[in-house]
């Protein structure tokens, strides 16, 4: 058995220190050690995006990042974005437009959408589609997801002083 390694991560603003097995990936760490079950695991090989979280402000695949690799870093999860109000408008738009059905993909989709909204405020609908291509949804058929993101993109653009 390989030694557990002491790992300190700032999760949603709170520093936590745990001893973890090197093979534990970040989503399992968040879900099983910290009880943050908003980030989901499905494919565990990078294809579906259900596990999307932020490390040092950038989205990553939580199933393709080891918890020990996040040592000393800041991790934000859907719980953090939700509690802080950072994506309140996005959540409302998803609700209004039925952009979720079972909701399994939704936390990952929201994490990715928020990265798009922050980094590409001028994105076209085709660019939104490209950006969201790494998040799979088995229920909605995607159109309502694109509608919701596009609506928030336009609303945030209009709200920003020119």
């Amino acid at each position: 058995m390989n030694p557990m390694l002491e790992t300190t991560i700032t999760v949603n603003g709170t520093r936590v220190t745990r001893r973890v097995e090197p093979r534990t990936h970040l989503v399992d760490f968040l879900r099983e050690e910290l009880g943050l079950t908003g980030s989901h695991t499905a494919c565990e090989h990078g294809v579906c995006g259900a596990c999307t979280v932020r490390v040092d402000g950038e989205i990553v695949r939580g199933c393709l990042t080891l918890a020990v690799q996040a040592n000393g870093r800041a991790v934000d999860t859907i719980e953090g974005l939700s509690d802080s109000g950072e994506i309140r408008d996005l959540q409302a738009a998803f609700h209004e437009r039925n952009a979720l059905q079972c909701g399994f993909c939704t936390p990952g989709v929201l994490m990715t959408a928020q990265e798009l909204l922050r980094t590409r405020p001028a994105a076209t609908r085709d660019e939104i589609r490209d950006f969201m291509s790494g998040n799979l949804c088995r229920c909605t058929g995607y159109q309502s997801i694109l509608d919701a993101i596009e609506a928030v993109l336009i609303a945030r653009r209009q709200a920003r002083p020119a």
Binding site: G46, I59, L64, F131, G134
Partner: peptide, 12 residues
């Protein structure tokens, strides 16, 4: 670069 995988993967 934009043809490689998706943003979350290109970030790592």
């Amino acid at each position: 670069a934009p043809h490689i995988a998706h943003v979350a993967i290109r970030n790592r």
